[in-house]
Design a protein around this nucleic acid. Structure first.
Lengths: 261, 261
DNA sequence: GCAATAGTGTCTGTAAGACAGTATATT
DNA sequence: AATATACTGTCTTACAGACACTATTGC
């Protein structure tokens, strides 16, 4: 039998259940960016056939943001992620699928759970998205997970429940968000090249962006600072490295400036 | 004793409690616009001293949007409101106030309620905002309400719990929203004048907007159509009436166009 | 005539958007 | 030399933003 307290998420099954809000969960769409592909971090649980978003339940002593952060930390070992709630999914039929029930839990883990635990009924979930740099994530499973993996958002498998829709809505939210909030600070390494950030924007917005106008824009905004340092990338001209002007970056957010890219 | 089933909201107290999601509510910030003031529709309950947002609980058979709509219909008699969730309020201390408990309910209504009903514990609430034309609302109380009234957002009283914060956040959400979604269709009468819509934008954005540039912008966007009809408003030059070009209006929303006013 | 409000045209400056050739590094 | 990628300048057009006088109506 597993030790059900090895992970902070797991007391939901038994003694700690009353410490959680019933019928409510968070699901995180964790975006990463790698080799011109926008990635999403997914979980594969032992007892399910399908992959799913890393999600969890909410303790009555924490906010939703804290709950989402706790779940993210458990899956990625990353702290200080930028997390943002973007939508709540409350369709009463959204739980109408899957073999997530007391029997399968008991069979797999030898843990007793009330068959009519609210966890197996209608659950409303709050969608969060997070941005993080791909290479900093060390995917880490928990009691329920046998696998955690980055997936290209362009070729996701069929996910549990309505998780494909949640990912889709998160991407749409990100596309709006990008006009109010410079991105890249969370998704790129500290030092990055113009082609890298250019390609990041093209990937998220799913359209071609003229590279001349793009760099002009970022520089005019005062958002990026050119370093006297180049990146060696093999048999080509070496691109210069840039860093974000964090002060200006935060000011844009603070002042609700609209960013037209 | 009151008849507790006179209103669809009230079965939460007794027999129907199990049909609701526990620990979760919706609160609606219903914006109206009248005489150059942005208004918010508030409730005054019999058993509380403070005014509050019209809110309610969510049935397991409905979505949050449907629940919010049901509550709005109960308070305003209006259907087909534009409703949008904008944020979830989940601070564990948000319920730390008020005399909303089983005793006060029992004393006032003679209704038996479990003293440890989840309703009296931590409740997370989903904030919605709605836009509606002031004059179309017929404020209507329910079992708990003794008063429903429009308040100028500039001079709100101290509200229950964190409702002042919810209103404040709703206004901020509206100010962002206005750049992605033309407003006015819901807040103005079908036929309106340029000074009216101009003043609406000034009120919401809380800043002066040059009237020449403003009308130029709306006309260039193709958003409004001038009618061959004037509004008689007394001892002044009569302003022309306009209607929205609904097709263009919806296209702007569909295409995620950014509206810079 | 007076008071109050409606309505509108022009100019300037900025920046979005379109466009392609040169420079650099490696093999 | 060939190849792959980095880098950048100019022009046009659109429009945001500043600015103030005339028109209409009722009294």
């Amino acid at each position: 039998m597993h030790n059900v307290s090895q992970n902070t998420d797991n007391d939901i099954l038994s003694t700690g259940a009353k410490d959680y809000y019933p019928s409510l969960s968070v699901d995180n769409v964790i975006f990463g960016y790698h080799e011109k592909e926008l990635k999403v971090l997914l979980n594969k649980w032992q007892i399910f056939e399908k992959w799913m978003l890393p999600g969890g339940f909410i303790k009555k002593t924490e906010t939703l943001e804290q709950a989402a952060m706790r779940v993210v930390i458990n899956r990625t070992s990353l702290k200080n992620l930028y997390l943002r709630q973007f939508k709540i999914f409350s369709n009463p039929n959204r739980n109408a699928e899957g073999n997530f029930n007391a029997e399968s839990i008991a069979k797999k883990f030898g843990v007793e759970v009330e068959p009519d635990h609210w966890m197996f009924k209608n659950v409303i979930t709050v969608g969060f998205f997070a941005l993080t740099e791909y290479s900093r994530v060390i995917p880490r499973g928990d009691l329920f997970s046998e696998d955690v993996k980055w997936w290209d958002i362009k070729s996701l498998p069929e996910l549990m429940l309505d998780h494909n829709k949640i990912v889709n809505d998160a991407l749409n939210a990100l596309k709006l968000f990008i006009h109010h909030h410079p991105i890249g600070y969370e998704l790129l390494p500290e030092k990055f090249t113009l082609p890298e950030i250019h390609s990041l924007y093209e990937t998220i917005l799913e359209r071609k962006i003229d590279s001349r106008n793009f760099s002009k824009k970022l520089i005019n905004l005062g958002l990026i600072i050119k370093l006297d340092e180049q990146k060696k990338i093999g048999a080509h001209r070496s691109p210069f490295l840039y860093i974000f002007n964090k002060k200006r970056y935060d000011q844009i957010i603070e002042d609700n400036e609209i960013i037209v890219i």
